[in-house]
Computed example of a mutant assay.
Amino acid sequence: MNLHGWIIYNGSLKGRKFRDFAEWIQEAAQKQGSSTNIYKNNELLVLLQTNQIQLLTEDMPALPDYVVFADKDIYLAKQLELLGIPVFNRADTIELSDDKIATYQKLSQHNIPIPTTIVAPKVFISENTHLENLDNISKKLGFPLIIKEAFGSFGEQVYLIHDQIMLRQKAMELQGKPYLYQQFISSSYGKDLRLQVVGNNVVAAMKRQATDDFRANVSAGATMQAYVPSKQEESLAISAAKAIGADFAGVDLLFGENGQAIVCEINSNAHIRNMYDCTGVNAADHIIAYILNTLYAKKKGTRT
């Protein structure tokens, strides 16, 4: 049975990496006998009417057997699910992954090791923010500490705070936005691990190292090298992905002081070219194999 899929990415974002991911998934699907179409998210509009849920597009094709959703357009992903289409990753997973606060809450709920985290209280823009809480926050976390905006990518909304003056300045700057305060893991300064999880397996891993930055994002200039994770690191990454319901994800781990890994972030739409360049593993092949096996098993179970 030849299953047909859609691959959806955000066409409004600059750069080739988003289209690149979609094309890699498409090539992997073709190799495994599954036809696909690639769509920009704004080519498939959410249309809601009384007692009717559908998509609005110029030339509406037949609905697919599955969707690989390489975007953060939660409403579109949810619409596809409401139409009965299996979506990988699901809308609620993408939403969790995109919100760092919600991610840490879910990880803590599942007893997964994370840096100590304090969520900034919700305030509205005014002269009176929660500055009276900053002394308690700094006493709990110590300096330096990390401030992270709840929504952000490529490490651009993550700040290293060295003292009380910087803390107050950043708190005033971010008022009205959701963000968090977090323990700084000094033993992982400028380095971390990225493990690519697909289903119940870690299919590839790399170590990232920055020379002059506390963050280890490759997009910010960090170098990468292939890495063989320990069983504990693999188990932690898989557990973290499962905690947010991810079918596949890039899980970032920090090096704790005692050598135990700590979950930093989970990316439900991790770009896979860097992992391939570093390790030679094409995660797209594993992602498509997982999706097709999941769908075939479900159809077989339905027939029986």
Rank of each mutant, 00 (worst) to 15 (best):
L3N: 00
Y9F: 15
S12F: 06
S12D: 11
R19D: 08
W24D: 14
Q26C: 04
A28Y: 14
A29Q: 03
Y39W: 15
L44F: 11
L45V: 11
N51C: 07
Q52W: 06
L55I: 04
L56T: 01
T57C: 14
E58I: 09
D59C: 06
A62D: 10
V68N: 04
D71R: 07
K72G: 04
I74W: 03
Y75T: 13
Y75D: 13
A77N: 09
L80F: 01
L82V: 01
L82C: 08
G84F: 08
G84M: 07
I85M: 10
R90Q: 13
R90F: 00
R90A: 05
D92A: 04
L96V: 07
S97K: 00
T103K: 01
Y104H: 07
S108L: 14
Q109T: 11
H110N: 06
I112V: 03
P113N: 14
P115E: 02
K122F: 09
S126Y: 06
E127P: 06
N128G: 06
T129E: 14
T129K: 09
E132D: 13
L134A: 09
D135L: 08
N136T: 15
S138Y: 05
K139T: 12
L141R: 11
P144M: 01
P144E: 02
K148C: 01
E149Q: 15
F151S: 13
Q157G: 10
Q157I: 03
I161P: 03
I161Q: 03
R168W: 00
K170C: 04
Y179N: 02
Q182R: 06
I185S: 13
S186Y: 01
Y189C: 04
Q196G: 01
N200E: 13
M206Q: 15
M206S: 10
R208D: 02
R208E: 05
A210I: 02
D213F: 01
D213T: 03
S219D: 03
T223D: 10
M224Y: 00
Q225K: 14
Q225D: 13
Y227A: 01
Y227G: 01
V228T: 15
P229I: 00
P229N: 03
K231H: 04
L236P: 07
A240H: 03
A241W: 01
A241I: 01
F248L: 01
V251R: 11
D252S: 10
L253I: 06
L254A: 05
G256H: 04
I262T: 03
H271D: 12
N274M: 11
M275Q: 09
Y276F: 15
G280V: 10
N282Q: 12
D285N: 13
D285K: 00
H286K: 08
I288F: 05
A289S: 12
Y290A: 09
N293C: 05
L295E: 11
Y296K: 13
K298Y: 11
T304D: 07
T304W: 08
